[in-house]
């Protein structure tokens, strides 16, 4: 078998796999309707405002509720105490 045939076959398989991912994504998105609805229900029922991503500090657990001076109040000479605080940019509402 020619090398070009092997290469082209591998490339076609790769492209087919990538297309399969798009199809998988579309199917998952369709199935996720129930999952997203369950999350949206909980948000509505409990009047939630934020996602549970970083639970280590209150301003990273509820970034949208963070007040104007929280990020620098932990202790003197500490700009940022928690790792997630440095992962997360300042919410636009605070910079307003």
């Amino acid at each position: 078998m020619r090398k070009s045939a092997i290469y082209l076959t591998i490339t076609v398989i790769n492209i087919a796999l990538c297309s399969a991912l798009f199809m998988h994504a579309a199917v998952r998105r369709k199935d996720a309707g129930k999952e997203l609805a369950s999350q949206a229900n909980i948000v509505k029922e409990y009047q939630l405002t934020d996602l549970v991503l970083f639970t280590e500090a209150r301003y990273t657990r509820h970034p949208s509720m963070a007040d104007l001076n929280t990020p620098f109040q932990d202790y003197p000479f500490s700009f940022e105490h928690f790792p997630s605080g440095s992962l997360m940019p300042v919410p636009p509402g605070i910079r307003r």
Binding site: L21, A25, F54, T55, E56, P83, S84, L87
Partner: peptide, 19 residues
């Protein structure tokens, strides 16, 4: 490990593939 930081409680969730 990067997203978890020092938090003990970290959600385990399946991300919906919005691509």
């Amino acid at each position: 490990p990067v997203l978890k930081g020092w938090a003990v409680l970290y959600p385990s969730f399946r991300i919906v593939p919005f691509i």
